[in-house]
Simulated scan of single mutants.
Amino acid sequence: MYNLRLYLDHATTAAAHSENPEPLINKRRSMADVTYPCYIQRKDASGNWYWIYYARNGEEIARSSESYKSRNDCERSIELIKNSKDHPVYYYN
């Protein structure tokens, strides 16, 4: 299920705790460095960005409903989702 050649941005490494940590923003990581839960950003066949959210068990549970021309717009979409945790949830029968 996992492609070891896939790279993503992931900011939790031991380097963050070293004396001279290297910048972690926009750092490319291999799938072996992934910890769950997490968001993974990828490009589609058209070269647009989208995100996938993986649960603690590594299963994909959400995906962006659109793709984005810029990675910054994709990141902004992730932030909107993260900040919606206190929004109401409605149920329609």
Rank of each mutant, 00 (worst) to 15 (best):
N3L: 04
Y36D: 05
P21Q: 04
L8I: 02
A62V: 02
H17T: 12
E79Q: 15
N3R: 01
Y53W: 11
A14K: 09
N20T: 14
G47L: 04
D44F: 03
R28S: 09
K85T: 08
N20G: 07
R76P: 00
R56S: 12
A16T: 15
W51P: 00
I40K: 04
N72G: 06
S77K: 08
S18Q: 09
A11N: 15
L8N: 03
E66N: 07
S18G: 09
P23W: 06
N93E: 12
D86V: 01
N26W: 14
H10Q: 09
S65Q: 15
K82G: 02
R63W: 03
C38S: 00
D44L: 05
E22T: 08
Y2T: 07
Y92S: 12
Y68E: 04
N26P: 00
N3Y: 05
M31L: 04
A45N: 12
N3H: 02
M1P: 05
I40D: 03
K43M: 12
S30C: 09
I25W: 03
R63C: 12
I61G: 06
D44Y: 01
Y54K: 03
L8G: 08
K82R: 13
N3K: 02
Y68V: 05
A32K: 07
S64A: 14
A16W: 11
C74H: 01
N93I: 06
A55F: 07
S77V: 04
I61F: 11
D86E: 14
L24G: 10
E19W: 10
A62P: 05
N93A: 09
Y53I: 05
R5A: 13
A45R: 08
E19T: 06
A45I: 12
M31P: 02
P37Q: 09
L8F: 09
D86T: 13
E60L: 06
Q41D: 09
S30D: 04
A14Q: 12
I40L: 15
E19H: 08
E59L: 08
Y36T: 06
K27R: 15
T35Y: 10
Q41W: 02
V89E: 11
K85W: 02
A11K: 13
I78A: 06
E60K: 13
L6I: 07
P23T: 01
A45G: 03
A32Y: 14
K69G: 08
A55K: 09
D44T: 00
R5Q: 13
R5Y: 10
Y7N: 05
A14E: 15
S18N: 04
E59M: 06
R28H: 10
R76C: 07
C74E: 00
Y7T: 13
S64I: 02
L4R: 11
L80W: 11
R29W: 00
T35F: 14
N72L: 12
Y91S: 14
I52H: 00
I40N: 05
E66S: 11
G47D: 03
D9R: 09
E60Y: 01
L6H: 10
A15Q: 15
E60G: 10
M1G: 13
D44V: 04
Y7E: 13
L6N: 13
Y91F: 15
Y90G: 05
D86C: 09
Y90K: 14
L80E: 14
R56D: 13
K27F: 02
P23A: 12
R71S: 08
